[in-house]
């Protein structure tokens, strides 16, 4: 158990460092400027409950491109961008929820849908338990998040 915690901590640190580095590099000008969620949104339950994800003001296009492919593979059978499907439409999700909440939903789905008030309400509305694929590395979920950020920044679903 201790090494799992250590791993999570390491992953969290790498996350933060990555964010910081890219923020420095692109301080001057963004190719795509991100829209940031309001502060103080709930963080949910899970490995990011007590952490803060520093979001880069620019969308990382390489990461979003990777996320686009992963989204098709892992998410598109249940989620559309503008329409209700098996699950809710995802346009605007990165503005309505904190990044920590979304990462917690990816990484701690079972607990989130039964105990987090927002996820619980969504389950009552959509009646299907979200099942992200098992064994997917955290950075793949981070890429999917970046793709959703791209959509909310540009209104487009294809990363160019």
């Amino acid at each position: 158990m201790r090494w799992i915690k250590a791993l999570l901590l390491a992953a969290g640190l790498a996350f933060a460092i990555g964010e910081g580095a890219s923020a420095l590099a692109t301080q001057t000008k963004c190719q795509v400027e991100a829209k940031l969620p309001p502060k103080g949104l709930p963080k949910g339950i899970g490995p990011y409950a007590d952490k803060t994800i520093k979001l880069d003001p620019c969308v990382n296009l390489d990461l979003a491109k990777k996320g686009e492919k992963l989204f098709e593979q892992y998410c598109s059978a249940c989620h559309k961008i503008t329409k209700r499907y098996v699950g809710p439409p995802l346009k605007g999700v990165t503005l309505a929820r904190s990044p920590e909440w979304i990462m917690n939903l990816f990484l701690n789905t079972e607990e989130m849908v039964w105990n987090d008030p927002i996820a619980k309400a969504l389950l009552q509305q959509y009646l299907t338990v979200m099942r992200p694929p098992s064994g997917v590395p955290e950075e793949d979920f981070r890429a999917i998040y970046e793709y959703l950020r791209y959509i909310d920044a540009t209104g487009k679903t294809e990363v160019k």
């Binding site: 098709e72 593979q73 598109s76 059978a77 249940c78 098996v86 299907t128 099942r131």
Partner: peptide
């Protein structure tokens, strides 16, 4: 491997349906 790849192909009298299943469709 994704709903985007779904297709139906006719080859003479053979019909190949490339179908996906996920909860619940």
């Amino acid at each position: 491997k994704s709903e985007k790849q779904v297709k139906v192909v006719r080859k003479g009298h053979e019909v190949h349906v490339y179908m996906t299943a996920i909860r619940s469709h």
